[in-house]
Each structure stands twice: as C-alpha cells, then as structure tokens.
Amino acid sequence: MTSFHESEMIALKDVCFSYADRPILNGIDLTIKRGEIIAIMGGSGGGKTTLLGLISGRLKPQTGSVLVKGLEVPNLRQSELYGLRRKIGMLFQFGALFTDLNVFDNVAFPYREQTNLPEEMIRTLVLLKLEAVGLRSAKNLMPAELSGGMARRVALARAVALDPAVMLYDEPFTGLDPISVGIIGRLIKRLNRALGMTSVIVTHDLNETLRLVDRVVVLSQGKIHRDMAPEEIRSTDDPFIRQFADGLPDGPVPFHYPGRDYWSELMDQ
C-alpha cells in the first residue's frame, strides 16, 4: 500500500517504463501538490509525454506506483479509470479536435457524453467556456477553418469543460506564433487559478513556461535530472540545463547520433 497525503494530487513512486526493450523512464519519484503548476522538460524522446500517459492511465508502468487523487491508476478497472478521467482534462499537442464537429459541438461533446444536462444549459456552458478562451463568435466554424492558436484554444475550452481537478498539457505551445503562445500561457494560468486545478505541462518553450509554473522538473535519460524553481533555471550552471536553456547544439545531449567514428567510416571503402 503506497502512502498518500491529502495535499498530494499526483504521486509517482519508483516508476519504470519501457517500450519493448527501450527503457524510457527509470525510477521516477515525483509528487505534485494540489493547485500546483509544474513543467516537465527535457530532450525529445526523454519520456515527458510518456509521463502524461502514465498519469492519465493510458500507459501502465512495468514497476512502481502512480497515484492520482489517491487512486492507484494502473490497477483501476476500465469503469474506474473512466470515472477518474472525468476529473482529468488533457490538451493534446495539436488540439485533437473532432474534425467532423464544429467549434460549438466540440466543446459540447463532454457535456453531451458525460452529463444529462438539457441542451439549453449545455448551450450556456459552452458559450461560457468559449467566452473564456475568446472564441465565442467562432462557435460555428469547423476545425479546418481555425488557425493553430485558435484550435488550441478551442481544445483548451473542451478540455476544461467538466472543470477537471487535474489538467495535463502535452506541448501546448508547439507550432504557435508568439501572440498565440502568450494567449495560451495566460489562459493556462488563469484557468488553473479560477478552477483550482493542478496542472502538468510538458513543454520545450522555456520562456513562456518559466512565467507560468511553480516548479520545473527536468528529465534526462529516463530519470529526474533536476526538480527546481523556475528562477533557478536561468542561473544554474548545470551543463545539461544550460544546453537546454541556451539552445546549444552540442553538449551533454550530443549533436551526432551515436555510432561509429566518422573518420573510420569514411576510410571503410
């Protein structure tokens, strides 16, 4: 039985996960308190999105424990997992809007599927959520007619439709222009405060993220490399974090894919 404190919303204890023979996460210990916003950072393929998959129950760890709201996620039956997921919202990297539904129906989807609310009330709630993300007047547009930033905002409105306790963001700033990045960043902070959520943000966007979060967890080689306050990131002389923060092409994360020596391969005719 894994211990769990009331103040903890998410707790991972000694979590190991691998795809076939490729280890991704190795002995992760992470606790996230209620109301916290934390960022998970690290190189590509470092297991950041996998971590979200484990928290949401879409992936099961080979060993270790994943607790969300005190529930051991890997041991939940499908119905129990779905019960938990009604309290978890997730913003996917590119929004994952349903392409056959317009903006209004996308946001109405969770209400229609998960509640017995009358259509009039659903209309009011959807308009409230769309107003919060500034897209009330775009309610009749189809996803194909939206810009990347608008699609992400609609997806955010849909993700928070049922006022989740936990919000997971999978690279919410990827592919957005600076204005949209700023808008999404402010919305994340505002919604987190207004709805009293706990947020986990997987991201590469250092500048925007450091303005938002309470903590930054840096993953490297399947382990938590550092768990620090955002202001420490700018001042640390940790070579890995410096390479990441300054965008240096070579360093602890090598520029070249590991393989044979260049010179010997050239000579190997």
Binding site: G89, A96, F109
Partner: peptide, 13 residues
C-alpha cells in the same frame, strides 16, 4: 490526429 485518444481521455470509449 489523436482524436480517438482525446475521446478516451474524456472517458468516452
């Protein structure tokens, strides 16, 4: 495009 994953995350099978 992760629409099925999004549905699954909204507790819709």
């Amino acid at each position: 495009t992760e629409q099925l994953a999004a549905m699954d995350m909204m507790a819709v099978d």
